[in-house]
Design a protein around this nucleic acid. Structure first.
Lengths: 272, 272
DNA sequence: GAAATCGTTGCTAATTATGCCACAGTCGCG
DNA sequence: CGCGACTGTGGCATAATTAGCAACGATTTC
């Protein structure tokens, strides 16, 4: 398997493309950084992180707060995520877009490989299965998977994603925290983990056996959106029957690209 | 009870206040309109609705799509809510801000009135209880309330909110759809409903008995954020023991204002 | 097949955002 | 308790971005 993945292409594109509105784009960019890794930002911090002038950072944050996307702590004057985020979250759930987009792709994937296909997105310091289709045959039926959380360090589903996070952020994740063991195959050594992440980036996929659930083999690839790591797509099955998982990597890659394209959902232009 | 509520002040402030960034504000404003009432927008529609030029609308939408807040249907070129909305929703849930802000207020409300206090927010065409504190005494204990949905037309919790929606949006809600009956006290006549909404606006609160759940009396007021209807705050209890619910309206109003202030969370300025 | 509608894109004027500066609170320290 | 450092806020001239126009291409409707 050759290295088709563009290792290290994940500089989070901060430049605003032509034809788009810079100020709006910057606001949205800042907003997206109120995630699990960083929940609070001050004016100066935002200015430094994004290279804005302080006054710009302050006005961006104030504008986001004005529409309820952030709230400013009256005491510390630091900003946290605001109630409009909930509004959007509900709107997204209601829309059912994710299932509509992803389910058919998962279904095909599962049908062609006879394995369980899962799309997982990062959630706090874990990966959360947001859509899944059971492998159709075999004795082992997988229980309700949607909503399930996986630890960041065990299993291909998580590794395929976290391998592509900037090393700095990964350190924030794993530093200090003890690394939990789930099976005798769980990797609990920090430097061994880091070496694995490197290998995953090099080969473009992650493959594990029984790291989280015993006797379950999983192969997974990164799903990126607009050049940034977004989630992971995986195929899993019982160790005995799900033979040579790596053979499905091309299929997984193709499906991941499909998802990426449909999640991006930019209108077709002449250049496409 | 006098009319203290500023009826009709809910023109959704589209002007961007001084010191804020107009372009960013417009983008956020547009984004917030991808809610339950309207899930799809085209470029021209946005331009007309907000009074923008077509090209501005197109660039706003493209920018929102670029960061994943919207996705454009490749075929129809209409925009729908995008995956970044989910990201934000998760961030909000994780932050636990809502509970932290609201729970103490609900607790005090419940303790002082011996009733069940609920904060409900609109969700799709319903109201969803997002935080609640049980009335502490009495034989009737209310079950897990958080997450529960109430229909838009029955019960004070819903009415206190929907009364303040622009009539036009309310019509979108109720037009065509049959109005479901839950108890013999449910109001199912559209014009009777509209008359009630008017009265609620005039008196500044909603009060119902057994419209949704039999033998449950509820009194509720609007919670607005930055001059826009945001949700409702209600007190409810068994019809027999929860006497003269209207007496608690001042308390409810005060609590609603507290919530509003803390949800807005703008830093104090000299003028405050 | 024609007309109307919708979304996209270059271009220039003009509004808007930018960055600098100065000020005002706050926190920590001596 | 007062001093210094830092963070956030606001005014203002400049410079850059956006707004609006208008024309085009692509779709859809009649």
């Amino acid at each position: 398997m050759t290295v088709t993945h563009d290792v290290g292409s994940f500089a989070d594109d901060r430049a605003t493309p032509d034809g788009l509105l810079q100020t709006a784009d910057r606001a949205l960019q800042v907003l997206l950084h109120f995630d699990g890794l960083r929940t609070e930002w001050g004016v100066t911090e935002v200015a430094e992180e994004f290279g804005f002038n302080k006054s710009i950072a302050q006005r961006l944050l104030a504008t986001l707060a004005h529409r309820g996307f952030l709230i400013a702590d009256p005491d510390t004057r630091r900003y946290r995520i605001g109630p409009s985020a909930m509004t959007l979250g509900h709107a997204w759930e209601r829309s059912g877009s994710l299932r509509a987009i992803v389910d058919p792709i998962l279904r095909e994937l599962s049908a062609r490989t006879d394995a369980t296909a899962i799309l997982a997105l990062p959630d706090n310091l874990h990966m959360r299965a947001v859509a899944a289709v059971d492998g159709s045959s075999g004795p082992l039926r997988v229980y309700p998977l949607v909503g399930e959380l996986y630890p960041a360090h065990a299993g291909a589903t998580s590794k395929a994603f976290y391998a592509y996070l900037p090393a700095q952020q990964r350190q924030l994740l794993f530093a200090g925290r003890p690394i939990a063991r789930f099976t005798d195959r769980t990797v609990t050594d920090a430097s061994a983990l880091e070496a694995e992440f490197l290998r995953i980036r090099q080969q473009g996929y992650a493959s594990t056996v029984g790291e989280y659930d015993s006797h379950v083999a999983v192969v997974a690839v990164l799903v990126s959106v607009r050049g940034e790591p977004y989630g992971s797509l995986s195929l899993g099955g019982p160790e005995e029957s799900f033979v040579n998982p790596e053979q499905h990597v091309p299929l997984l890659r193709h499906a991941a690209q499909q998802i990426e394209r449909r999640l991006t959902g930019r209108p077709r232009t002449r250049k496409d």
